[in-house]
Amino acid sequence: MKKLILSILTIILFLGCTDEKGAKSFLKKEGYSDIKTTGYNFFECSQSDVKSTGFIAKKNGKLIEGTVCTGMLPKSYTIKLK
């Protein structure tokens, strides 16, 4: 029972570490389209980033997979491509 509770708390914690709305908005401004977020991406962002949102999108007709990392400062976004 303790393992189940710990697992549920861990999932809730990582769901709170994404910024789907902000990531989609930033990707649109950068010229991406058909954006689908894939949730939290482990080990993709630096330690100074507070949120990590995986995505699959199109840019210039190519399918691109990556992560939008959100820093502590407002509107501080970085795109990491796979």
Rank of each mutant, 00 (worst) to 15 (best):
M1W: 13
M1Y: 11
K2Y: 05
K2C: 07
K2P: 15
L4F: 14
S7T: 14
L9D: 07
L9E: 09
L9Q: 11
T10D: 08
I11T: 12
I12W: 05
I12T: 13
L13Q: 06
L13W: 10
T18W: 01
T18K: 01
D19V: 06
E20D: 14
E20N: 14
E20F: 06
G22W: 03
A23D: 07
K24Y: 04
L27P: 01
L27T: 02
G31Q: 12
K36V: 08
K36N: 10
T37Y: 03
T37L: 05
T38D: 13
G39C: 00
G39F: 01
Y40Q: 01
N41W: 11
N41T: 11
F42D: 01
F42V: 04
F43T: 05
F43S: 12
C45T: 11
S46T: 09
Q47D: 12
S48R: 07
V50C: 06
V50N: 07
T53R: 01
G54C: 08
G54Y: 04
I56R: 15
A57G: 12
K59M: 01
N60V: 00
G61A: 03
K62V: 06
K62E: 15
K62F: 09
L63S: 15
I64Y: 00
I64N: 02
E65I: 11
G66Q: 10
V68Q: 07
V68Y: 08
C69K: 03
C69Q: 07
T70A: 09
T70F: 04
M72P: 08
M72K: 12
K75I: 07
K75H: 12
T78N: 14
T78W: 11
I79W: 03
I79K: 04
I79V: 15
K80E: 13
K80S: 10
L81Y: 15
